[in-house]
Simulated scan of single mutants.
Amino acid sequence: MRRILSVLMVLAPVLVAPTPAFADEGDVTWTVRTASNSYGADRSSYSYSVNPSGTAKDAMIVANRGKDPLTLAVYAADGLTAETGQLDLHARNDKPTGIGAWLTTGGGTIAVQPGRTVTVPFTVSVPANATPGDYVGGIVTSLTQPDQAQGINVERRLGIRIKLRVGGALTPNVAIENLHVDYHGTWNPFSKGDATVSYTIHNTGNTAQSAQQAVAVAGPFGWFRTSSAQPAASPELLPGESWRMTVPVEGVTPALWAGATTTLTPLLTDASGSISPLPAVVATAHGPAVPWTLVVVLVVLVALVIASRFLRVRRKAREDARVQQAVEQALAQV
């Protein structure tokens, strides 16, 4: 059985509208774009607000720019945030639970003649028991071809993003989890060091959100507060997703104990595309910030002082003993 390797995934929103998404390899070329209808013209992606038990009907236009007829698979998939921070789609054989399960087309494949276009109508049917909130996925066209040299099937995918907001109570919320601070000193016993603050941003609400971030480290009682360079906003996280952050903070005073404070300002995008900041979320963690080089220097100095005092006492004891012996000898001769 051949293994399937997915080598191309393009989502239309990454391109500047109204340029269609486009796949090209040799003589096989096709494009996809949104249809012009009551939802709008020249859209870069699909966006719907639908209540439970409701539907949204739309269409995708597929054009064959090559010289040969094309037979393409058409299917839907749920979205996810990739390690790069960009939107990606689950593989075709991953079991969908959202848009990938709710979107249906007229058939599983389409045939497109050279120089022609095919309209692919589809329907998004939201179940009655769907949880309110945001869902992201995509409608995908796919071409699978054998690679005889590698012994695998190569799947090339081209799709358009779909963002769906299911009506009901929206509960946007993010949490800061697994917050840690680590201090890193220098060889110079009197210089400041650096700290590393790490934490996880967890979207615990039911809306897609990104977050502006601010990180600072301070000593006891808030003394010697130092802020990091402004971290970039997190990628937009889907409900339930997490994003791990590691932020360096330079010029931290080693005051024996350090407190790291992370502040997140969630950013919520509404149905019109407007972005609104939400109340900030703050978390604090503590850890040692010991200037170990200075501690070693102090330990050595203390050891030298103790050793010097011990040697003085020992010399005095020897001198006293010598004097006492001389006195005793003198008295014995009288």
Rank of each mutant, 00 (worst) to 15 (best):
W102Q: 04
T204N: 02
R92V: 09
V154L: 15
A111M: 13
Q148L: 15
V174I: 12
P172S: 06
T144W: 03
K95Y: 12
G167M: 05
V120D: 00
N188F: 10
Y135V: 02
E155P: 04
F122G: 04
G168K: 02
I99F: 01
I99Y: 01
A149F: 13
T105R: 03
I139A: 02
S191Y: 06
N93V: 13
P121E: 07
K95W: 09
T141A: 05
W102K: 05
N206V: 00
F190C: 11
N93L: 14
R157I: 04
W187E: 13
K95P: 08
V112R: 04
A149P: 08
P121S: 09
Q148K: 14
H202G: 04
H180G: 11
F190Q: 12
L143T: 07
V166N: 01
A149M: 14
V174S: 00
G193P: 02
V174E: 05
K192Q: 12
F122N: 06
Q150L: 15
S125K: 08
G138F: 05
I139Q: 00
L164F: 04
T109E: 15
G108N: 11
L103S: 08
Q145K: 15
T97K: 12
S198L: 05
L164C: 04
D94P: 10
V166M: 06
R156C: 05
W187K: 12
T200Q: 10
V124S: 01
D94H: 14
G167N: 05
A208E: 11
G205P: 05
T109R: 13
R92W: 07
D147I: 05
T97I: 10
G108L: 08
D134C: 08
G137L: 06
I176Q: 04
K95C: 10
L158T: 01
W102M: 08
V112I: 12
T131R: 13
D94C: 13
G107D: 07
S210Y: 03
N129V: 07
N188Y: 09
T204S: 08
T104Y: 11
P189D: 02
N206H: 04
F190D: 13
D147M: 07
S198M: 08
P132S: 06
N178T: 11
Y135Q: 02
Q113R: 14
V136D: 03
N206M: 02
V154T: 13
T119G: 14
Q145N: 12
L103A: 14
Q148Y: 13
P189R: 01
N129Q: 11
N203F: 01
R156W: 06
V140R: 01
G138N: 06
I99E: 00
T144V: 14
G98F: 02
W187R: 14
T141I: 05
G167Y: 03
L179A: 12
P121M: 09
T200P: 03
N173A: 15
N188S: 14
N188I: 11
